[in-house]
């Protein structure tokens, strides 16, 4: 299926979306639209449904009401969901300090899973090239053999971003990107996000509870309250 991309086309649109876990509805009649190339920040308190919103967009929840369109394609079936996930890079809110020893290179390359390698298909030369390229972009080339468990919070966040970018996404989802960062690492991250956004004209959706940071990075800021978007409260030039 070929999707014609128009500069003004919406990268993402949600209308009347309801979603949750079991009987608990976290999002209700949520509508939101994001233009291609736009950087939108979604602010909200803990429990407002920010992460659930991302999970709905990525088709990771069992029953989702309403309509979600991503890059012009309506997301209805698990196949649509897999397609969305192949177009989207997701930067999780994680410290990434798991128990498994894993090199920076491997941790980034795993972002290609489902894109070119999976199960019996092994990573290809192109997967390795792309991984090298993204390590360059985020400035971790020198640390490629380092164990992720020995990295600082800022370095881990750069690994997360490289792993999202290695999927060659059109849309980037950032989940509380600054949670574990000090002020200096935050500035580095802002520059990095700005740089990759311009480089690939990425559409960015960021959820945050840090209003100041959101306003600094985003074109537009909306609030998520009780599972609904309240728009127009704060427009950033």
């Amino acid at each position: 299926m070929v999707i014609q991309m128009d500069r003004n086309l919406e990268a993402l649109s949600l209308s009347g979306v309801g979603a949750g876990y079991g009987k608990e509805r976290v999002l209700s009649s949520l509508s939101l639209s994001v233009k291609k190339g736009e950087c939108l920040a979604i602010l909200g308190e803990n429990g407002a449904g920010k992460t659930t919103l991302f999970r709905a967009i990525l088709y990771l929840l069992p029953d989702i009401a309403g309509t979600i369109r991503v890059l012009g394609r309506t997301v209805k079936t698990p196949e649509d969901g897999a397609w969305v996930r192949s177009q989207v890079g997701y930067v999780p809110q994680s410290q990434g300090k798991g128990k498994l020893p894993i090199s920076v290179f491997d941790a980034v390359m795993l972002g290609r899973w489902g894109k070119s390698f999976a199960y019996l298909r092994r990573p290809t030369a192109r997967d390795r090239e792309l991984t090298e390229a993204m390590l360059d972009v985020v400035g971790l080339q020198d640390l490629r053999f380092r164990d992720c468990r020995s990295l600082s919070g800022g370095q881990i966040q750069r690994v997360n971003i490289a792993r999202a970018l290695v999927r060659e996404p059109l849309i980037l989802l950032l989940d509380e990107p600054t949670t574990y960062l000090d002020a200096a690492s935050r500035d580095v991250l802002t520059q990095l996000i700005d740089q990759v956004r311009k480089k690939w004209s990425l559409t960015i959706l960021m959820i945050s509870h840090d209003g100041e940071y959101a306003r600094q990075l985003a074109d537009r800021v909306v609030h998520l309250r009780r599972g609904r978007i309240e728009e127009g409260l704060e427009a950033v030039s």
Binding site: R55, L58, L60, G81, A82, R85, Y90, P92, S94, G96, G98, K99, L100, I102, A107, L110, G111, W113, G114, C148, R163
Partner: peptide, 12 residues
């Protein structure tokens, strides 16, 4: 093992 959340959203 590395990151179950990542694994899930990648579709593993």
């Amino acid at each position: 093992f590395y990151d179950p959340e990542q694994a899930e959203w990648l579709g593993v």
